[in-house]
């Protein structure tokens, strides 16, 4: 990990970025999230205890409103827990200020949203460059790596396209390329296939499978069994609590030849 993070910026990175002491990439201890909507308090998560190891491929399942997104937002350091502890790579992020959380999101987490969340009127290339821009990488390096990433997700020829010129599946692949920009150890995806048809969904999941095989820890929220079938562990939620947590024998990804819409082949070799 050190080698990946080395040379990102001229300034020395703080300890919470460079220390990788834990084999438990994610550890939640009595985590509670309360939404205070003024009139009433909604319990989003009720005392969650959960550990995800480095290199796991996990599906989070559950009905709508069961707290999946709430959990993902906290895991992604976009939101803070109301109580309890969240240790990311052994560091408690609950106590961090917003700029420290920005740095964590930038270096340690790749987030993929259901609604893609690409910046409009900004090319695929520029979108993928953004996390590297905020990591203060130089322009040449940024562009080179962004092109590589786009090629890896099969969009090498679409680098200059604007988001509105791409299909849903393609947009989501741009978003994945962007999430991978700073080589984060953790990839979080909240219903990444929710807005996609079956073929595109399968493509996205195959991409995650390959990333997982390369060592990235992947956590995917879904309510479709077919999607969860790709993963190695399925955690089911109900009413803000863990209902079950069981290993899964992953579905074998299809061969490369049959991958649809793969203009350049989906090649996910690390460079």
């Amino acid at each position: 990990m050190k080698s990946i993070l080395g040379g990102l910026g001229r300034k020395k990175l703080p300890d919470y970025i460079t220390d990788n002491i834990s084999e438990d990439l994610i550890r939640l201890e009595d985590l509670v999230k309360v939404y205070d909507t003024g009139a009433l308090k909604v319990l989003g998560l009720k005392r969650i205890n959960l550990t995800i190891h480095r290199g796991e491929f996990v599906a989070i399942m559950g009905q709508s409103g069961s707290g999946k997104s709430t959990l993902m937002n906290i895991l992604g350091c976009l939101d803070r827990p109301s109580m309890g502890h969240y240790y990311l790579d052994g560091v408690d992020v609950a106590a961090m200020d917003s700029d420290e959380l920005s740095l964590i999101r930038n270096r340690k987490i790749g987030f993929v949203f259901q609604s893609f969340n690409l910046i409009s009127r900004t090319s695929a290339l520029k979108n993928v460059e953004l996390p590297m821009t905020y990591a203060r990488k130089n322009k040449k390096l940024r562009e080179e790596r962004a092109r590589q990433l786009l090629a890896r997700v099969g969009l090498g020829k679409r680098a200059e396209h604007m988001p509105n010129e791409l299909s849903g599946g393609q947009r989501q692949r741009v978003a994945i390329a962007r999430a991978l920009a700073n080589e984060p150890p953790l990839l979080l995806a909240d219903e990444p296939t929710g807005n996609l048809d079956t073929a595109a969904s399968v493509e996205i999941m195959e991409l995650f499978s390959q990333l997982h095989k390369e060592g990235t820890t992947v956590v995917v929220v879904t309510h479709e069994e077919e999607i969860a079938a790709f993963t190695e562990r399925i955690i089911r939620f109900r009413d803000g609590e863990v209902l079950s947590d069981s290993p899964n024998v992953p579905r074998e990804p299809r061969g490369r030849d049959s991958a649809p819409d793969a203009e350049e082949g989906i090649e996910l070799r690390d460079t």
Binding site: R105, F111, S120, L130, Y134, A135
Partner: peptide
Amino acid sequence: TREIGIRKSLGARTKD
């Protein structure tokens, strides 16, 4: 606002 949210989710700091 949404663009700002996206940028922050990607690691933009207050200063950025």
